[in-house]
Every structure is written in C-alpha cells, then in structure tokens.
Design a protein around this nucleic acid. Structure first.
Lengths: 193, 193
DNA sequence: GTAATCGCGTGATTTAGATCAATACAATTT
DNA sequence: AAATTGTATTGATCTAAATCACGCGATTAC
C-alpha cells in the first residue's frame, strides 16, 4: 500500500527504513468512489493527499457556474488546496474523484512532525513545490500566448495518457476553453491528417 | 545594504547574527540601469536575485513577437528563472530592469552552502516558493475565469502601487490583454464614475 | 426495462477582445 | 533645437472562441 509513496519519495531524497516506517504511521488511508469529494469549497483543507490509485481533479466554480480545473492528480501525485492547507482558511477549491481512488492523507500537524523528525523531508517538499511552481508558470505563460489548438496539442504531447482517462469536457475546462471549441478542434485535427 | 534582506528573512525564520553574517558573504551586489538585462533568454540563470532597490520584470517573447510578463519584482522580492536556475538548462525568460536597480545575487552553489550550513533556510525557501505557487495558481485561475476588466481591477486592488511605477503597456502584457484594450477599459472605468 | 443523466458532436449566431491604423505628446538622445 | 523613441489614446474592422440550441448514443439509476 505504501510502495508507491516510498518509490516517489526516494526518487528525490534518501531516507532509512526506520525513517520511512515512522513516515508511514503519519498517513491515513482513504478510499473514494468516483464523483465523491475529498474537499469542498468553503471547508478547510486538512490534508495533503498522495494518490496511490485512481485520478482526481481540483477546481473552482466561477460566478457564472463554470468549472475551472486547476489540477489533475494521477497515481504518484500529490493534491491539496495549498493555500487552505497552509493557512487553515476556507478552501477556494473543490477536490473530487474522477475515478475510484485509494489515497494516503497527512495532516498539517503530522507533516510538521515529519519535517521535525526527518529534516530531509523539508528538502523533499521544497523540491515538490518548486517543480509544481515551474509547471504552473509554464502553464500560465502558455495560456497567455497560445491559441486553443496549441494549448490542446501541447497538453497531449506533455501528457499523452490523459486523453484516455479524462473526459473531454474536463480537458476543455483545464485548458480554459469550452467543450464545443475542443470538440471542433479535435475534428479539425482529425480531418487534416 | 543588507538590511532589507535581513528584514525579509526574519519575517519568516529566526537566524542568529553569525548565521546572517555568513549568509551575507554569499551574496554578490550588483547595480543595473533601466532597460539592462539581468538574464537573457537562452542563457543559464546562474543567480537567484533579491531586489534591494528598483523594479524588474521577467518575460518571454512568443513566436509572434509579443511580450508576456511572468513577474514583476519590487524591493524585497526575489526574481529568477526558477527552471533554468535549478536545472542549469537554457533560460526561457528574460529578466530586465524597469527602473535602475540595486540587487543581491546568489549562485546555486552558494545557496546550497547556505542550505547546508544554516538548515533553517531550507524552510525559508520552501515557504517562499509555496507562497509564490499559491499566488501563481490564483493568477492562473483568474486568467481562466475573469474578463479583461476584472483582471485589471483585481490587479489594482491587490497591488495598488503598481500603476504608479509600471507603464500601462507592461500591465496589459502581464494581464494577457493588449495595450489598446487596457486603455479602453481604463477610460470606461473613468467615465462610469 | 425505461427514465434520467452524461458525454460528445455540430450548426447558427454573437461578442469580447485583437488587429490595423492614425495621432499626440512626453522623454531621451544627439 | 531637432530627431528619435517610448507611451497612451481613439476609431474602424476583423476574428477566434463563446454562446445558444439541438440531436444522439452510452451509462447509470430506480
């Protein structure tokens, strides 16, 4: 159950078996059915979540009722509302299972314990968040400069797997375009070939 | 010269006088004239920069020749091409002085030394990058959901100072709209009052 | 087993913002 | 003092993508 967690951590830092055994005790396992919420807007995000199985999305609903997806999280990824988790303020995001999921949750308090007892985790989480920032900056710049079609083709080049598992209307919402536009783009690309 | 740096660091972590004295030795001071480059696209970003005076921007130029601004950096802020700095790959961004600047530069190597000798800096940089990620996520979501006018009014609400110091066409470029659109929005807002 | 919801495609129309173009007037540079 | 460059405005036109609207299989629910 914790193999993937161990694998992902040791890709970035080295830890001893004892340290990982301690680490394991701090996580709470949780299963989620498709369409269930891990977090709802307005609640405080009490956990940072590691995905061992399945797929989730974090998103907001704007004042017109449109969904905007911040992140997808596949197996081996982390997901949380970082702002809410760190400040313990009401969350701005929803986190919802796209597929049935198996998760490992860690509270802010437990994470602090981990950081104190195994200081190399300070480095681990710094690097995680650095990589996330780099990816988010890239996505932001892409959004400012690319056409709808470029956004889509770049996405499928960077994450070829996602088209198999994520419904089109969610991909559209992640890209910041409508489902109709994405549908038209896809048929254009198909006929061009 | 290092007072602002000291102030900003100790807002987040506690360090001793010796530790800060060691820290100081790792930074190289640099002055930059308005329009000078701190980094040019294609070069490796060798430094993370702390701004003690002045104002800079990081930006890309897309294939149509349009400038897209990732970040402004005022006094007390940090700026770098994080991807290039961490991976030592060619930079995707330019960093350029908007005003005459006084800067403190630290190399990746010196930063590693600092992290090793004063481990609480691990925490400092983690928190910096966490806050940056939260802000970038917020900006991204805003870009997906807001109109041009909303983007502008949110910006001036969050950073009232920026309109005084940043030319309008750069604000437009930061918001992902054209100077003409921003100009029209401003005159609409003005006549509405 | 049939009603309801979900996911996708496609056509007609609208619109926010881009693009193209001309002007004005600082602020620098020479 | 003249020339150049940077910054902002305002008008006319265009266009990429949104919106509105409908049909139609595939799942899911009761």
């Amino acid at each position: 159950m914790h193999e993937l967690l161990y694998k992902k951590i040791t890709e970035i830092i080295s830890i001893s078996e004892e340290e990982f055994n301690f680490c394991k005790t701090l996580f709470v396992p949780k299963k989620l059915r498709k369409r269930q919420f891990l977090l709802q807007e307005g609640d405080v995000c009490k956990y940072t979540t590691f995905v061992t199985k399945g797929l989730l999305k974090s998103y907001t609903i704007d004042n017109k009722g449109t969904e905007h997806i911040l992140q997808f999280a596949f197996e081996g990824w982390w997901i949380a509302d970082l702002y809410s988790f760190l400040t313990e303020q009401a969350s701005l995001f929803n986190i919802e299972a796209i597929e049935n999921c198996e998760l490992l949750l860690i509270t802010k308090f437990s994470r602090e314990q981990l950081l104190n007892k195994v200081p190399s985790f300070e480095r681990y989480f710094r690097i995680l968040v650095e990589n996330n920032l780099i990816a988010t900056q890239k996505r932001l710049m892409g959004n400012l400069s690319e056409t709808a079609e470029e956004k889509y083709t770049n996405l499928i080049n960077n994450f070829p797997g996602c088209i198999q598992r994520i419904p089109q209307h969610m991909i559209a919402s992640y890209l910041g375009i409508t489902r109709e536009t994405l549908s038209r783009i896809r048929s254009q690309i198909a006929t061009r070939k």
